[in-house]
């Protein structure tokens, strides 16, 4: 698909909007449908689109396979780390009230806690989806002499 100019330009124009939309889905998940999981999938889809159009190598220059594998593990760490952080602040595991800046309104911390753990979900799902895509897409080229 290297010569299809409409596809190439279209993908290039769409990709930033898809990535922005993924961030919107994540940060607006409290108010509208969506959340970390959906955002991670959409983010991965943006890079899958770029890889389909521009080739796997170009995308792997931006997102090395090692990096996305690290993302998959990092997300779980963020999620579990949020729980450890609430414990360090003297609350239960994953009791987000610990993040409240105003002790009179403990539920204020829920917002940040949810955003943090959803970020963990986002990073894991993104890393997993892109890694699996790399593995599938990279297999067909095994016979290349190189």
């Amino acid at each position: 698909m290297r010569e299809e100019i409409i596809v190439r330009v279209g993908a290039k124009i769409l990709a930033p909007f898809i990535i922005t939309f993924a961030l919107y889905v994540h940060f607006h998940g409290d108010y509208s449908p969506g959340g970390g999981f959906q955002a991670g999938v959409i983010l991965a889809a943006a890079f899958a689109l770029l890889a389909l159009v521009y080739g796997l190598d170009e995308v792997q220059r931006v997102l090395p396979p090692r990096f996305v594998r690290g993302c998959a593990a990092l997300g779980v760490l963020i999620f579990a780390g949020a729980g450890v952080a609430t414990m360090a602040l003297g609350h239960g595991y994953l009791a987000y009230n610990a993040f409240a800046y105003d002790p009179a309104h403990p539920e204020g911390g829920q917002h940040y806690g949810i955003l943090l753990v959803e970020l963990g979900v986002l990073v894991t799902v993104f890393g997993v989806m892109v890694s699996v895509f790399y593995l599938f897409a990279g297999r067909g080229r095994r016979e290349d002499p190189q």
Partner: peptide
Amino acid sequence: EIGIPNVVTS
């Protein structure tokens, strides 16, 4: 208790 409108997320 949670303070956000989307019950699914909470």
